[in-house]
């Protein structure tokens, strides 16, 4: 946990959300926490996210959300896939039933939340230091 808090503080203090290198590390950490699989398939339509994610080891990008283990998106445009979604907008996260977690910037601070109910719906759980960010609240 200390390591992750340090990572978050470093992220906010050093790059303030602008550097994709640190965002890559956070996304990698989130994916590792929610899945035990060594290799993951990811689907995203967002070019910026694609640039960040495709540099992560053991991540394979797929062109169909149906084939993906996780969907990464800034918008709720993947409702037909019924795959666990990691969003980057809190407003979208609130209204996306398949969104298991969200990572966004608020007041210059990187913020992470997981929904325990939605994780449960996909048979997932968050391990390790990120489990602090799992909440039961529906919004």
């Amino acid at each position: 946990m200390k390591y992750f808090i340090f990572l978050l503080i470093s992220l906010s203090t050093i790059v303030s959300g602008a550097d994709s290198h640190w965002e890559k590390m956070i996304i990698e950490k989130i994916l590792q926490s929610v899945s035990n699989q060594k290799e993951l398939t990811i689907y995203t339509q967002d070019e910026e996210i694609l640039k960040i994610v495709k540099t992560i080891n053991n991540i394979h990008m797929v062109h169909s959300c149906q084939k993906a283990d996780f969907v990464l998106s800034t918008l709720d445009n993947t409702s037909s896939c019924h795959k666990p979604v990691l969003l980057f907008s809190y407003n979208e996260y609130k209204h996306t039933p398949d969104a298991i977690g969200v990572f966004f910037w608020q007041k210059g601070r990187p913020t992470i939340r997981f929904s325990s109910q939605r994780l449960k719906n996909f048979g997932l759980h968050v391990d390790g230091e990120l489990s602090k960010f799992v909440t039961a609240k529906a919004y």
Binding site: Q106, R109, R113
Partner: peptide
């Protein structure tokens, strides 16, 4: 930030 939106307390 809307009401009930999570806040990350750095530090």
């Amino acid at each position: 930030a809307n009401i009930n939106e999570p806040f990350n307390p750095l530090g």
